[in-house]
Design a protein around this nucleic acid. Structure first.
Length: 543
RNA sequence: GGCCCCUUGGUCAAGCGGUUAAGACUCCAGAUUUUCAUUCUGGCAACAUGGGUUCGAUUCCCGUAGGGGUCACCA
């Protein structure tokens, strides 16, 4: 077989060579320890937690080492493509604080290694495909889908490994140039397959997360170019990560089994292999069993879930960090106020087994994160979220900006910081009593009507908005005594027969009238956020 | 089924031949607080299993089981 002729026959329009590509996409001028990596999502319109998980790793590694983090769109599958998916993806990543140095962006591709969308890199793949053909490493395969199915059925029936290799590849491997020419003339569609060697050898790949991975060397005549001339993932990965000069390839563990194909290509092309980092799959527990998160059944797999729930980006990020690096929590304890970007992230400390997405843990992390924010920061994040998901509430926040800041500062001064905000959605519910527009009675009003009326009446009579906290509370205690309630809850506990109730009942009454619930922050502080008019109005309703 | 990856409490996890087997979340009890949210104290709870190697295995090796992945002109 004259491979040169075959290459010309298959790729008549390709004149460039790999050497030209090497010049066009030179080695990056970075320090030797700089990490260049990327995420390569497929634009399906669905962005999941796994995307973010891998993005966080890549972003940290690249930016900690003064390297480059880029976005490559892996759109080689026409069927999966969804309109607007790239924009969705970029905005989701940005929302969660992942920023790219180069790659696909909302305003087109940015960077010296463009294009960053695989469909636009067709000529690049064809140059390499032609080169491989010249080297006798490929051949066109004219097998139809039906023929492929038949072969697979036969193999399954005989319990053989399915695929095109060995004797199953012979027919198309051994086609003469004339036969190929005839097929082409007849308009038969073809794919370009890699010509694998029959071998019993095994390969060892060093994975930065998992250590040594030993697997059999590739024996499959896998597809390089599909019939539309677009590469498969395997071919595109090798070509792109070489010419985009990635130093690390971070991807899910589902790729481990195709590693032999990738290694084979890197070796055949005599290119330097990147460092592979295969991450664990995110899991979920159900009926006591661990299983992979499913797109259909688990809303929490979608990144949009966290946006809709209003879980702030920093919380999601810190939560992922706790999953990713075991000592993150210790670091956080030692550096309570540090920016999480300053946490020294390392691949070595990454977990191998599949982590479970624990929403309880997320909630806890989230509370901590919010408790560390200033009232202004909370306001900004919350407002931004409301503008998209709860516009009515956004209006309130804007209208009552000053009151909201004061409200957010309740219990935020000093060392003991209240931790009652979990996420923006919950904040809307938790904070609703600060606004007349959203105020409702959520809990039952304690005490009977008679006690209530009497107490509220005397409370309003003696109320002085200028009283400081302790003066105010002294008055409440006096009123409590007058009403026949125990000032000390313990007294009531010991001698329930001597009192109508305790101060707890009294303060709960006030709390309910003012906030609509019996569980709420400090009454005096809340009163001073609401202002005298609102307090008097809300209490007067019960007279 | 072949090949591959994984296996410490309910969950995330330290540990890398000798430890009372850390810590965090959850849950429970107690304390503090006018309620709650906190905070503090305490508690429940683990090395999947069988063989080796070794003076000694959670740790090293082999098998078994369990979970997961993959075997496409999908990524």
């Amino acid at each position: 077989m004259n491979y040169q002729a075959l290459a010309e026959l298959l790729f008549p329009d390709v004149s460039d060579t790999p050497a030209i590509l090497e010049q066009r996409f030179p080695e990056r001028d970075l320090s030797s320890d700089a990490i260049v990596t990327r995420i390569g999502p497929s634009p399906t319109g669905f962005v999941h937690l796994g995307n973010l998980y891998n993005a966080v790793i890549g972003e940290r590694l690249a930016h900690q080492s003064n390297g480059v983090f880029y976005l490559r769109i892996e759109d080689t599958d026409e069927k999966r493509k969804v309109e607007g998916a790239v924009e969705t993806l970029i905005s989701a990543m940005n929302y969660f604080g992942v920023h790219f140095d180069e790659g696909a962006s909302a305003d087109g591709d940015q960077g010296n290694y463009a294009p960053y969308r695989q469909r636009q890199r067709k000529e690049i793949y064809h140059i390499i495909a032609k080169y491989l053909t010249q080297q006798g490493k490929t051949y066109p395969c004219f097998l139809t889908a039906e023929e492929l199915d038949m072969i697979r059925e036969e193999q399954t029936a005989h319990k053989e490994t399915p695929g095109i290799y060995g004797k199953y590849a012979e027919t198309n491997r051994n086609l003469t140039l004339e036969q190929i020419q005839q097929n082409l003339n007849a308009g038969k569609s073809w794919v370009l397959r890699f010509r694998a060697e029959e071998t019993e050898e095994s390969i060892i790949v060093h994975d930065a997360i998992r250590g040594e991975l030993k697997m059999p060397r590739n024996q499959m005549d896998f597809v390089l170019l599909k019939s539309d001339g677009i590469p498969t993932y395997h071919f595109a990965h090798v070509v792109d990560d070489h010419f985009m000069r990635s130093t690390h390839v971070i991807r899910g563990e589902e790729w481990i089994s195709s590693l032999p194909m990738h290694v084979e290509l890197f070796n055949t092309l005599q290119w330097k292999q990147p460092i592979y980092c295969h991450t664990a799959t995110l899991m979920k527990i159900e009926d006591g069993k661990k299983r992979k998160l499913s797109k259909r059944k688990d809303p929490e797999l979608a990144l949009s879930y966290y946006q809709q729930e209003g879980i702030c980006p920093a919380a999601v990020w810190e939560f992922l960090l706790t999953l990713l690096n075991s000592d993150f929590e210790e670091w956080r304890l030692a550096n309570p106020n540090a920016d999480y970007h300053t946490f020294p992230y390392t691949i070595e400390k990454m977990s191998i087994s599949g982590a479970l997405v624990d929403l309880d843990k997320l909630r806890d992390v989230s509370k901590e994160v919010i408790s560390r924010m200033s009232a202004e920061e909370i306001y900004a994040g919350w407002l931004e979220w409301c503008q998209q998901y709860q516009p009515d509430f956004a209006e309130l926040l804007t209208k009552y900006h000053d009151r909201t800041i004061k409200a957010l500062n309740v219990g935020r001064n000093g060392t003991k910081i209240r931790k009652d905000l979990e996420n923006w959605k919950q904040a809307c519910d938790f904070m609703r009593f600060y606004y007349d527009e959203t105020f409702v009675m959520q809990d039952e009003m304690p005490c009977d009507a008679e006690t209530r009326t009497a107490f509220f009446k005397s409370y309003l009579d003696s109320y002085d908005h200028t009283d400081d906290s302790s003066t105010w509370f002294t008055k409440v205690k006096t009123l409590t005594e007058q009403a026949g309630f125990a000032v000390k809850p313990k007294d009531f506990k010991k001698h329930p027969e001597q009192y109508k109730g305790s101060i707890i009942d009294i303060t709960n009454m006030l709390r309910a009238a003012l906030t609509g619930r019996t569980n709420a922050p400090d009454i005096w502080e809340v009163s001073h956020v609401l202002g005298e008019d609102i307090i008097r109005n809300r209490i007067a309703k019960w007279l």
